[in-house]
Amino acid sequence: MAQVNPEFIDEVKRPGEFNASACMNCGVCTAVCEMGIELLPRKLFRYVLLGIKDKVLENTETIYSCLLCKMCEVNCPANVHIAENVRSLRYYINKKVYNL
């Protein structure tokens, strides 16, 4: 069973950055993902919002596979800053997992 950590979002969040609360879960981003990765970015962001930290950390390769090309972002009906959110997750992983 997935363990939920309500504080996880605050760990990832930097001032004015990670923000996916406007996401309506419509799936356009996943449909247009250039890498064809089903997790990107809708499910991934949902894991962050729900605080399912283990699921996020299980998918580090996916997080770094994102091209930051903004194809998803330009198609997002909720104007979520997807590329910046992915960069925020990388920042978090670099610090907390890779100790960089």
Partner: peptide
Amino acid sequence: GLFTHCCGGPAESLFPKKAKQK
């Protein structure tokens, strides 16, 4: 144009095979 597809280059430093496929 605005909806241009990516060359895959940004994946090159970590995942050369994925970059090549894209």
